[in-house]
């Protein structure tokens, strides 16, 4: 299964699993990212910078390290 950092810009993905500890899970869920949610990849910054995702009308930037811990499924 791909992780979020492997998905192209403009795609929509479904979050399958958060492969991280309690802290990471808390921080992602409180900002609105839960397993099962549909997330849009808005922008992937150049030079290995963060990824901008859209979730329920909000935009959230997440670092590549965090993105590697999000198992996703491309839906569109």
């Amino acid at each position: 299964m791909p992780t979020l950092d492997q998905v192209q810009e403009g795609k929509k993905v479904k979050v399958i699993k958060i492969k991280g500890g309690l802290r990471l899970r808390h921080r992602l869920t409180e900002i609105g990212i839960h397993p099962g949610d549909i997330v849009g990849i808005v922008k992937i910054s150049v030079f290995g910078g963060p990824i901008l995702i859209a979730i329920e009308g909000a935009e959230v930037a997440i670092g590549r390290g965090v993105a590697q811990k999000l198992e996703v499924e491309v839906v569109e």
Binding site: G21, L24, R27, L28, L52, E59, V60, A61, V66
Partner: peptide, 9 residues
Amino acid sequence: TPGLIFEVP
């Protein structure tokens, strides 16, 4: 820290 996560309002 668990890495960068921040809202872009």
